[in-house]
Design a protein around this nucleic acid. Structure first.
Lengths: 121, 121
DNA sequence: TTGAACTATGAAGTATACTGTATACTTGTG
DNA sequence: CACAAGTATACAGTATACTTCATAGTTCAA
């Protein structure tokens, strides 16, 4: 159970960004029920898992909305299995598309390097 | 040699976006020297190659600035070979990082599918 | 018990990447 | 030769994803 400062340190994500993610519904903390002098939110491993996923997904061009659809159903059961699989399979397809695009880019950049090498002989 | 309308049709990129890319220095057309009644810009295969690369790179989360650094040196020689390789090798590294992240996401999503399957037995 | 550090909230501001609107000129077809 | 369609330019507006600012309350170590 970590406070936001600790969560920020462990994930490398700035506190304002974490608050923004919380407001956007990507992560959520909860209050300690036995404390009522403050409104401090505590975060657990689930939040860290989600944030790691968010960082990866953002790095490869997924939007926060696309990411939200996935992390939303990680710990939820109120959705039919079919609906859950639909979202996940769609993302798996997108991932394969992105890998294909990255390989194409790689090829093109290596070709570019070849061209430069040859032209400077 | 295509006008912007044709370029848009062939790449699927809307005309205002193409103009935005041109203003941002990502692509460039040129006027027909023998015509001086208008300022119509014409685009060749180079523009299409660049736009295809831009579309791929954007889809995997590269910024326009990162993309510009690459396409800028495709047809330029005013930069030292070392500087060119620096940019290209940096991008190749980023590409491998992104592929690794995509594989990690894939693993996690497939694990998530397993969990859903088991819990709904 | 005081002050530095931490937390919460709301609202405004910023960067990136478009997207739309207005205006005006050019071209090709019937 | 009218006029629909295409082109250019400038500028305002929008969406996404933060980032900063202002304010105010809380906790904890010295």
């Amino acid at each position: 159970m970590k406070l936001i400062h600790q969560l920020s340190k462990e994930t490398g994500i700035p506190i304002p960004t974490l608050r923004f993610y919380e407001k956007s519904g990507l992560i959520s903390g909860r209050r300690k029920t036995d404390v009522n002098t403050n409104n401090y939110q505590f975060y657990d491993q689930e939040a860290i898992d989600k944030l790691n996923f968010i960082q990866m997904a953002k790095a490869v061009g997924f939007t926060l909305n696309e990411i939200k659809e996935v992390v939303d159903l990680w710990y939820k059961k109120e959705i039919t299995q079919k609906a859950q699989f639909e979202v996940l399979d769609k993302r798996l397809l997108q991932i394969d598309e992105k890998i294909a695009e990255l390989n194409a880019m790689k090829k093109q950049i290596m070709l570019c390097k070849e061209n430069i090498k040859n032209r400077n002989l």
